[in-house]
Write a protein that binds this DNA or RNA. Sequence first.
DNA 1: ATTAGCACTCCCTTTAAATGAGTGCTAACA
DNA 2: TGTTAGCACTCATTTAAAGGGAGTGCTAAT
Lengths: 342, 342
Amino acid sequence: MQLDERKTKILQAIIRNYLETGEPVGSRTISKYTDLNLSSATIRNEMADLEEMGYILQPHASAGRIPSDRGYRFYVDTMMAEKEREVVEMKEMLLERQDKMETLLKKVVKALANNTQYATMISAPSTHRNKVKFIQLSRVEENQILAVIVVEGNVIKNKILSITEPLTDETLLKLNILLNTHLNGMSLEEINLGMIAALKQQAGIHSNIVSEVIDAVAEAIKADEDLEIYTSGTNNILKYPELADQEKASELINTFEEKQQLTELVLDTLSDDNNTGIQVYIGDETPVESMKDCSVVTATYDLGDGMRGTIGIIGPKRMDYDKVVGTLRTLQNRLDDLYGEN
Amino acid sequence: MQLDERKTKILQAIIRNYLETGEPVGSRTISKYTDLNLSSATIRNEMADLEEMGYILQPHASAGRIPSDRGYRFYVDTMMAEKEREVVEMKEMLLERQDKMETLLKKVVKALANNTQYATMISAPSTHRNKVKFIQLSRVEENQILAVIVVEGNVIKNKILSITEPLTDETLLKLNILLNTHLNGMSLEEINLGMIAALKQQAGIHSNIVSEVIDAVAEAIKADEDLEIYTSGTNNILKYPELADQEKASELINTFEEKQQLTELVLDTLSDDNNTGIQVYIGDETPVESMKDCSVVTATYDLGDGMRGTIGIIGPKRMDYDKVVGTLRTLQNRLDDLYGEN
DNA sequence: ATTAGCACTCCCTTTAAATGAGTGCTAACA
DNA sequence: TGTTAGCACTCATTTAAAGGGAGTGCTAAT
């Protein structure tokens, strides 16, 4: 048996209706809902077929049908191929470029949550920034040295070092030159133990400063492993009865608060990059355990220069895929436009 | 009528019992629960008195009694005065001083949530840090200048400036000297328009750099207005039926995610500093709207040097005040010890 | 002052019945 | 052969009634 046009229409009608109401949908509803002019009995026959084919299922014997994961998947696939979507009112917010990336991201994720009424997340853009660009030690107080390290992608790391031995300005200058000449342009792999030992030796009594600076360098470079993630609208989870029970909701809320688990989602999205950069995880497809009963839609945005991040929307399986994908797509374009050229 | 010893004992018994069970408690229970050897009838009489006095109330005519806000208040006041508490197993976690404050705070707030099974928050220590300590401009690339600003309390602000006009190293040095001689030691109030104009004039063609630096200074100084707050265990809210309904839980979760509203709590706690630094807000007493049905216990911790922060525990009114206050107190001491001397 | 006893209240649970949305199947129809 | 009307059946949900039970207030006796 295969999915002819009529079955397709009926399936879509079932799903669309279920997305709206959240209730199992019966044959009579579809009979009226579609423009097929078929009686409920005919629809029933078709529904029996669709169920046999695994696209829909019955929560219990005398209930209507709800989409199965496979049904959702079909719906999403056909829908994604279909249309380009209208622009949302998020425009003006993005019009003037925020000077602080953090503020922008928080605003975006919040607007997205308000807009969609789902839980949302966004990861700060990260790149491979693995080369040291600039190091500077400065005295800020008698016994305090400020180390500033800049790595590729203009990621800046500050560290205050307390010194015990007196340090003349001249020595400080020498240390600066020493560090810069040896470490500039180096990647994490290139800075090996031998090199560190050599540096320490040259620094003599101030070798501990070298140690601390190198620690800071390491931290700055690997900082993107725990990438920053902002969330919003977690409370929207409670709006959907199928997610709102104590157990599931609790886990989800925790996931959103801890953020740790969300990085998996980000990494998965970034790694497996298809043409559009928009991905839909339905039920078990998700890489995050606590979202097994949800659907997750993610989008990759690209600010050029290898700086990429992920936006995600998490909701019930009966999520309004159409709207969500559309919203994400426009948002994606906005971000790309805004930062892309720079 | 006044609260004699017997009434006090009965009231405490009622509250303690209610804290455990979450159910209204009846006279017979108390009759057995206490060591007073009184019949349920006598207890009933006393309970009638206590109700008249406003310490307890009946959810409905034939139910047991639950504590009123006033009852909780009484309980907390007597309890706080009473005892010094046993030490919790949070010790080892704090033993070695974390190099990153952020990591420490996240660990603390998480441990606290696990420990108490309530929702918890902690604010990063902030001080009045309102004086500029150090400014430095450095070239990191041909057309990019890094501005580093350090203000009191070692709060560091970085800003990358893109320049259009060429800038010699010599000019850069001059700018550095210019900025430092004029701005070092200055507070936000002291940096006025006239001064800024003068600086700009001296900077000549590079006046825009001065502008940007001053913007950054302003940001660094006022950064403590939106102080950083970490939360954990938000999902614990759902554990308490009296908070778990869609409406309330949703607002609470939102408060914890947004964090904005939590600053009110922090500020209130920090401002109104009593002897111990531990405060209990019951029901309406809280400064945060969404917590009207909760109790909130906050503690101030002090790292010396004017660096102070707030820890908070948010739970149902029938919170285990005893344990919570005890835990907070020891935690407070730990933090003070750990960072105090430095 | 304390207590036993009792009538009364009212929430909650259980049980049963009624409802109604939806199905599968069969037979008739075009 | 595909479509449809009709009907018996299923089963979650709603509604109503009944009963239980925890707890109270009051009174009278100790």
